[in-house]
Amino acid sequence: MTMEEYRKKVTFRQRMAISMCLAAPSSTWLIRSLAGDVSEYARGLLAGVLVAGILIGAFFAARMTMLLKNEDKLREQYIKATDERNQAIGRETSRAACLILLVVLYLGIIVSAFFSMIVSLTLFCVLQVLAAAVFGAFFYYKGKM
């Protein structure tokens, strides 16, 4: 990835963050009007999603704008993003996290089966989806490399 490509990526991220900020209130209003009279819990959850959406969007929009205005910072971030050691760390982290998640889910299925069948089956479904994602990604990259 060249510096120019990275700049375009940052500009895209900035636009996405601004869109997220703007879309959060309107999408929440839309969901509320479509769902009609909802419970107190659902209203609270929706408000949480709205506030989180705006805050995360604003944070990233400010960060990306700052990067685009400061060439030195942008170059620093570009080097961090393209640094091969950082990328190797990211790959190893994903691999280890995925393995840990699979083991924890597997143990969770067994342990939760003694207490709740619903929880156990839910975890089993999550494990199936994760396994499908792992196999899908494996065959995708096998064909690509």
Partner: peptide
């Protein structure tokens, strides 16, 4: 690091 376009940590 600057010449090789990597971080100093690398």
């Amino acid at each position: 690091a600057d010449a090789l376009r990597v971080t100093r940590q690398t």
